[in-house]
Design a protein around this nucleic acid. Structure first.
Lengths: 346, 346
DNA sequence: CTGTTAGCGCCTTCAA
DNA sequence: TTGAAGGCGCTAACAG
């Protein structure tokens, strides 16, 4: 309603709209310093802001990147959104975030919306089953898949950014081994997604390397209600897995949760069973979500360098071609030792 | 890149662009059924999506609402963003979310961006100190303040949506009173914000009504590092407040955290001090964030009806005028009894 | 019921 | 340096 327009600025500054446009687009060399100053003042005085719709209509792109996540209510993705926003702000561009609630139809619709909005590119932290669709989108704008590396490699049109999940799990194993644990378990839901498969692989490789006994506890997803919003499911699965952990044939003295949510669930379950962490049992997660810190005891975990990953993701969108499809984009995880791991009782 | 345009659809369907436009804007009565069918097919065949920038440039508004939160890494605001997105989707519109990191400058900049983007309205869950600026924005588009009622009422141009914080605190007090507690405490940082002041007022009123002893524990904000991202601060403050709780002169048997984050911190602190919740001490929060459930024991709390509040917020943006500035917009909180409260030990 | 047409605000030649 | 002018894709009169 009654926003100032470029012509108003031009009139007030006593210059042409062309100069204003040049000013707005940082072509300072094409005007005298005093012109520049006058323009600056006029813009400030009017509170002028270029209309992005018009600009986009003309140039074809918006200074905006899209972000898809399963749900912002999920702590990990909230943090991711934060990191992407921070990264985008460094490029002077906005983020439009959508929760897909893991609904493929909604996912498709939302991608189309983003395209209609002229998004420069799309970062997706939402694991699609329909990768062909993703590839189609990728022909229209750069698509960066966050933490869902392998699924998409085959198409070769999508770049990916991911923590090295194999290394992450290995880091957890090595930490436990160094503490003296000889029998450990990995607790995970059925590893359908490839990042979970990677973590599983890392676990098995590291266990073999260290000569440990490694048991796999598959938490049956039907044991807890699905929850597309906040991922309470993983927490509940972890909690109910605690009993199986204690009853396991290999008598593990430590467990790795496939991620922090699961580890926190395990921690609560163990305590409800009268076990004390880390005195009776060691526990370690992966991701380093905020509540790892708020857990009692503070959860030892393997951190994903989210901000660095987000920076790379946005960079790839702003400068596609810089990275070729399928190239590395693998980030090194970092062990964060807190208080949920200790040497096993002898 | 090479998106189909409205003319392409018109050509393929063998009709005029007007009809396509009518179709897109749901003016079905202005065309024959067979025309409608042809259009439908043509759109599907081309995968056509109207360009939102062009549409917005023409109509002046985008099907988009802005959302400002301190940080999406904060569990509560992640959930809020989720709820707003769900509400907006029901109106067929998108959400552009920004984290302000509680930086007034960024807040201002982001509001301006939103205006430049043609946002239909702005929901802010971010407590500004500069309410005049907010009022200025409100002259350009509807602004709905989420959970920061009183600060803004004086301007009369901004509508607000908030839980009844007085009632929320009272609900907590009454629950504890009903369990038999006679001396309780409220733990809060210095109540600068007005929703905290409301909670404090509700606490004091309810305590007086029930004839209890009510102590106020002000957690000194300097005791924990500030954290604009994830609000670890409140957690840490709660944790360090546990000792003061146990040493308090009024010998409280239960505590209310000003919100869940604080209550969870208190819970962890109490346990580290060897106290068992709820056997030795009862604990209750306010908000009902997800981790109230993941806390051990599951935290009794007072829930904000976030989705209903979000629906109302979006409604006010879509149909401004329906609600007059400053009108109620107060929502009833709900007591969620879980396992952190019990009768005091006799 | 359908076609024609004039902009929405900005960017970018182009000639002055 | 500047002014004029032609769109970007769509909508909404208005005239058929």
């Amino acid at each position: 309603m009654n926003e100032p327009r470029i012509q108003d600025v031009a009139r007030l500054a006593g210059v042409s709209t062309t100069s204003i446009s040049n000013f707005l687009n940082n072509r300072m060399e094409q005007m005298r310093p005093d012109t520049r100053l006058k323009i600056q003042q006029a813009i400030a005085q009017l509170g002028y802001r270029p209309n992005s719709a018009a600009r986009q209509l003309k140039t074809g792109v918006a200074a905006m990147v899209g972000l898809l996540v399963p749900s912002l209510a999920n702590q990990f993705f909230g943090a991711l959104a934060c990191a992407i926003e921070t990264a985008a702000a460094r490029h002077g561009c906005q983020v439009m975030t959508f929760s897909t609630f893991r609904d493929p139809d909604r996912e498709r619709a939302v991608m189309a919306d983003l395209l209609a909005y002229g998004a420069q590119g799309i970062v997706t932290g939402s694991a699609l089953n329909d990768t062909d669709h993703l590839a189609t989108i990728a022909t229209r704008c750069p698509v960066v898949a966050f933490d869902i590396r392998h699924t998409l490699d085959k198409h070769g049109t999508i770049t990916t950014v991911s923590v090295d999940n194999v290394a992450a799990a290995a880091l957890a194993v090595e930490h436990l081994a160094a503490l003296g644990h000889r029998s450990i378990a990995l607790v995970t839901p059925p590893p359908y997604t490839l990042n979970r498969q990677d973590r599983l692989k890392g676990f098995q490789q590291a266990v073999a390397r260290a000569g440990l006994t490694g048991e796999l506890i598959i938490a049956d997803a039907t044991e807890a209600p699905r929850d597309p919003h906040g991922d309470t499911q993983l927490f509940e699965l972890g909690r109910s897995a605690a009993a199986r952990l204690l009853a396991a044939a290999s008598r593990p003295t430590a467990a790795i949760g496939i991620n922090d949510m699961m580890a926190i669930g395990i921690g609560v379950g163990l305590r409800q069973l009268g076990k004390q962490v880390p005195r009776d049992f060691s526990l370690i997660g992966i991701d380093d979500i905020f509540f790892a810190l708020a857990h009692d005891p503070p959860l030892t975990t393997v951190r994903q360098p989210i901000q660095a990953m987000a920076d790379t993701a946005v960079q790839r969108i702003r400068a596609p071609g810089a990275a070729t499809a399928g190239d590395g984009g693998l980030f090194a995880p970092q062990l964060i030792v807190r208080a949920s791991t200790a040497a096993p009782r002898t």
